[in-house]
Design a protein around this nucleic acid. Structure first.
Length: 138
RNA sequence: GUCACAAGUUGGGCAGUUGCUACUCCUAAGUUCGCUUUUAGAGUAGAGGAAAGUCCGAACUCCAAAGAACAGAGUGCCGGGUAACCCCCGGGGGUUAUAGGUGUAAACCUAUAAUUACGGAAAGUGCAACAGAAAAUAUACUUUCUCGCCACGGCGGGAUAAAGGUGAAAUGGCAGGGUAAGAGCCUACCGCUUUGUUAGUAAUAACAGAGGUCCGUUUAGGAGUCCCGAUUUAUCGGGAUCAGUGUAAACCCCACUUGGAGCAAGGUCAUGUAAAGGACUCUUUGUAUAGUUAUAUACAAAGCAAAGUUGUUCGCUUUGAUGGUUCUGGGUAGAUCGCUUGAUUCUGAUAGUAAUAUCAGAACUAGAUAAAUAAUUGCCAUCCCGCUUGCGGGAUACAAAAUUCGGCUUACAGACUUGUAACAUCA
RNA sequence: CGGAACGUGGCGCAGUCCGGUAGCGUACACGACUGGGGGUCGUGUGGUCGCGGGUUCAAAUCCCGCCGUUCCGA
């Protein structure tokens, strides 16, 4: 796995996995409530993190939604080493999507704004996974 | 030169780093030696003029074949273009505005510009609020004129449809003659209807001719005049003889077009539309064979039933017992082709007023599928703000492929080109 | 990608087919009944009929184009 890469294997492609994340995943919000994340562990163990960005249709037009998705993917790509050590041999399914943010509130999107929010999300997920592991271990 | 409008073109540029998708090459691992999967790497390519809205038209695919009639839907001046069109180009008519001319005026003519869903209202039906006497068969409120009567102001009979008022709209307009008063009652001009000639492929235009008559309860009908046709050449038949208001984006009539569904079409491979259980599932006639008969089997014909033909009917097709239809039951996984070389793009020439067509040369330009085309840095370009006047900061539209084309509609910062109008300056 | 419906006072809906007065319930304001509240009765306010064009004498209604909302189809 490349350090800053994001190949096909590292993305959620199947409908089954999407519905698994939606139904059984845990939801985490940023402090500003701009973004939210849903995550859960997959069935098989491969040591890979799979992500998918999801933008609601009401958030904006096609150009805005496309840019939002690309910025989310880019932010994750640059900061994914936060979670690599944590997952060990399991498969982590992760969905990132904007919550309260939309085109009317913020017509122009910048990478710096989105990246800070994503880093905050990833750290929260890391902490939660670590605490759960301690509980099960003890 | 500034600004406005219209039409057309364009839709920021160059370089570096990281990442994504497709293809080609290549590296290593695996292999049933067909290849497949994966890893590292190199090269090339990677959103639009509207990709949008999904409003029309096609290509392509399936419905056995794509048949008929009706219904429904659509189109609607004429000609051309096109694979096709509710599209485009050209022409004609109408409407509106401006300018000029004629005229007392109404109005007409000419030019320019804009606009136009523009077949039929004389096949029939419906509707026309309020106001007004009367709203589609016309009618007669106030007037106007006249005759008769008397208490001299009205009453009654008659003529008329010009004027008044209402309305969106009042049964051609205007002027003169005429009259008791009036009226196409008569005349000129305009309009309208119709016939012919000329021009034009045609819509249509120009010119020429005819048409407003009389009797009748102003109904039916008859006479006269004009036109067309036929012949026995003076008769017969047909038509016209001045509007019968508007509305067909009301029903409708006429002409033309139209089968339905759509790449989630559809093909191939894989797989659980499975396994299991329940229900329903022909009749008659003829012939042949077996049989004592009842009947059974096979074949043929006719009918019947079910399903399909995506509104109905006809017609057609399939099926009617190792099969079919339907219900219960039970749930998985998708891959690949279609998929980009095409009514293609660019350049030039020729034909045409133009849309467009033909010919020649060159080019290959996304093909994703929870869905790639991104992030960032530097320099430049354009605009805005600030002041240190050449620096700093900010901004650069509308909007992103999803089978593919041709149009339409809508959104759009800036730049460039051409044309028109106004203003300023110079000659 | 394909198909369908809706938009009318603050809210929920009629009226649109077949053109001419915009109406109903609720809410709001005022008054009456009551010692007061609730309730009932009466009166009143409040609508660019989603937006823009067209047809017509006249458009919420007919036609065309946009905008928004909702639903359906593997």
């Amino acid at each position: 796995m490349k350090r800053f890469g994001l190949s096909k294997n590292e993305r959620i492609k199947k409908k089954k996995e999407i519905s698994r994340v939606f139904n059984t995943g845990k939801r985490i919000y940023t402090n500003s409530r701009k973004l939210k994340a849903i995550f859960c562990f997959g069935e098989d163990d491969s040591g890979i993190i799979k992500i998918v960005p999801a933008v609601h249709k009401k958030a904006g037009n096609a150009v805005w939604r496309n840019r939002m998705k690309r910025l989310l993917r880019e932010s994750y790509r640059l900061n994914k080493e936060i979670l690599i050590d944590v997952i060990e041999e399991k498969t982590l399914l992760l969905m990132i999507s904007p919550n309260s943010i939309n085109k009317k509130k913020q017509p122009k999107l910048l990478l710096s704004d989105v990246q800070d929010e994503v880093i905050e999300l990833l750290n929260k997920i890391k902490n939660q996974i670590l605490t759960e592991r301690d509980k099960t271990g003890s």
